[in-house]
Design a protein around this nucleic acid. Structure first.
Lengths: 126, 126
DNA sequence: CCGGTATATGCATTGACAGGCATATACTCT
DNA sequence: AGAGTATATGCCTGTCAATGCATATACCGG
């Protein structure tokens, strides 16, 4: 279970994270709030802790789990590369569904590797 | 393959998305750039398209794939709930590692369900 | 020390998905 | 039509992770 992405792929883990965003909680509380069996909760918490999503402190027999921001910020960082993209698509959308010139693809292709030249019908719009 | 989260859990799919953020590409280009076998690329693109991450247009025998913003924005929306949290932790971190009163947990517990009262040593700090 | 409570862990089962490979489909040019 | 190119799909297999259940560990009060 390597990446941040695999960790949050699991719905129950996301639920736990969402629950912990308000305040810290014990295992039992999570168990009841989210209506999942206790071993399930403990195992997911184990995964989340190993991945740095949460940390825990001991309170008598209880363990209080709270959120740690780091991995989520990592996720945010990955997402960042797309922000400029979709902000470009907010207003100008249908307008330029094909503003990118397809010939650029060929050019780039050629730069990478040899391309068996299947001549094309040059169906360039506009 | 339901959620946005499961889709991006796959490293190759993330690579494809990152590649497409600059411009559209054909399957063959992706295949060579990312050095993965063509069926693999096609299958991942299928998943991505079904999930709304990409769309394709036909160009002769080629299919040109480009990014669609919607699912990534959904991901961004999910992340939003944590932003306020980690911005709070930016400066004030070690300072209040236990500012939250543990008794709040009991209170909340009681509201949800019956709690067998194991009296506690009341190890409240400060 | 004992019964009760809270949490963690081990084991076995199951299901889902990614990869490899072969093949099908589709388009293009001559 | 036929060969070459580009992409999609079907089948099979190995892997891995989530769950259920039982059990272990740890802490509490008396």
């Amino acid at each position: 279970m390597e990446s941040v992405f695999e960790i949050i792929a699991e719905p129950n883990r996301r639920a736990i994270l969402s629950l912990l965003v308000s305040s810290q909680h014990s295992v039992g509380e999570i168990e009841r709030q989210l209506r999942m069996p206790q071993p399930t909760v403990s195992k997911h918490l184990r995964v989340l802790r190993d991945a740095g999503f949460v940390e825990s402190t001991v309170d008598a027999q209880r363990r209080l789990y709270r959120l740690k921001p780091d991995p989520l910020q990592e996720l945010d960082a990955w997402l960042a590369q797309f922000r400029q993209f979709w902000s470009a698509h907010v207003d100008a959308l249908e307008r330029h569904l094909d503003r990118m010139d397809p010939s650029m693809d060929r050019a780039m292709d050629r730069a990478t590797d040899r391309v068996k030249p299947t001549k094309r019908k040059t169906r360039r719009r506009k």
